Amino acid sequence: MNSEDEFSGAGQSGERVLPEPLPLEDLYHIYGIERSHADNVARNALELFDILNSVHGLHPEMRTLVEIAALVHDTGAATDFENHHKAGRLILLQHPPSEVPERFWPVVSWTAFLHKKRIGSEKFEKLKGKDFGKMPEQLQELTLKVAALIRLADALDYSRMESRLGKVTFGKRSIRFEIEGQGAVIDAERMEKKGDLWHLLYDTRLEFRPAPKK
C-alpha cells in the first residue's frame, strides 16, 4: 500500500464490501489477538477514561466503546506485524465487533489504525483529507478522542511488565501520572511519546514519570 493509500478506507481492489460483524471471541480466535495485552490495554483505557473524564468530556456510555476498541486494537498484528495498524483497520472494516452498535463501527476500525504511528499536525491534517474526513464531524471527533486514550493505554503496556497507573496529580493545565511496576521507566517514556494525539486535541498537558522507588 503506497503512502497515498495509507489513509484510504478502501481495500487493495478499491471495491466496497458489506461488513460482516463477528463476536469478540471469534475475532480473538481467528486473528490470534494477544489476549493478555488486549486485556491490559482495556484495563488501562478504562482507568484513563475515568481519571480524565473531566477533560475528554465523553459520555459515560462511550466507556464500553473505549473498552472494546482497546480489546481489538491489535487485530492485525498476527496478519502483518510491521503494518498491523493498517491490517487491523481493514480487518475491522470487514469484521467489526458485533458487540458494538453499527454507527460506531468506523470508530473501532480507525482507532486500530491510529494507535501505532506518531501523529503530528501534518499527519493529522492529511488524515482529515482522506476517507476519515468524509465521516460526520461528530464521528471523527469521537474516533480521535477514543484513539487518544487507546494510544496511552497501549503505551502503558509497552514493556509487557504489568505497569499500572499510580499517583495522579492535577494541576491547573496539567495532569501528572506516576507509573508503577518493573517496566515503569520504559512505559512512562512510551506514554510521553504516545500522548501526541491527546495534546493535539486538548489543552491539558499530560506528564508521565516512573513512581519513586520505595
Rank of each mutant, 00 (worst) to 15 (best):
A87V: 08
L18F: 04
T204Q: 11
Q182I: 12
E180N: 05
L144A: 10
A184C: 06
L46D: 03
S54P: 01
L52P: 02
T143V: 02
R190V: 02
N53C: 14
R35P: 14
Q140K: 13
E61R: 07
E99H: 08
E207W: 06
S159G: 01
G11K: 03
M1F: 06
K213C: 10
L114A: 10
P101S: 07
E20I: 09
K123C: 11
P212Y: 08
G14I: 07
R209Q: 15
E25Q: 09
A147Y: 04
Y158M: 12
F49E: 00
T169E: 13
H59R: 09
V41W: 12
H85D: 04
G14A: 01
V100H: 04
R43A: 14
L201S: 14
T79E: 00
H59F: 04
M191W: 05
A45Q: 01
E99T: 02
K167Y: 06
G129N: 14
K214V: 04
E67S: 08
Y202P: 06
G181P: 13
A77P: 03
M191L: 07
A78K: 05
T79D: 00
G88I: 01
S3V: 15
S36E: 10
V100I: 14
P23E: 08
H84P: 01
S163C: 15
D74Y: 01
G133S: 13
K193R: 13
A87Q: 12
A188H: 00
S3I: 13
A112Y: 00
R43S: 15
L92Y: 00
K193G: 03
L52D: 05
E189M: 11
D131K: 11
K130M: 14
E125H: 04
D5Y: 03
A45G: 04
F208G: 02
R209T: 12
H37Q: 07
V100C: 01
S174F: 15
E47L: 14
E25S: 09
D203V: 07
K116R: 10
M135V: 04
R63M: 03
H29R: 15
A70N: 08
R63C: 06
P101A: 12
W110E: 03
P96W: 11
L156P: 03
L149P: 05
H84G: 04
A70V: 13
R209F: 15
A155W: 10
V185S: 05
K117S: 03
K134M: 02
E47W: 09
K172H: 10
G171A: 13
L52S: 11
Q12E: 08
V108M: 04
D26A: 08
P19K: 12
I150L: 05
A69R: 01
G183A: 09
A78H: 00
D5Q: 05
K86Q: 05
G32Y: 14
H115A: 10
G181A: 04
R43T: 14
I175N: 00
R118S: 11
F208A: 03
N2F: 00
L114I: 02
E34W: 09
E67Q: 15
T143S: 10
A69S: 10
F208M: 01
L90W: 02
K130N: 14
G9E: 11
L156C: 05
G120S: 11
E162I: 09
K126V: 09
P97Q: 07
L201I: 11
A148N: 06
K134N: 07
L93V: 10
R16C: 04
M62W: 01
K213Q: 08
E6K: 00
Y28A: 05
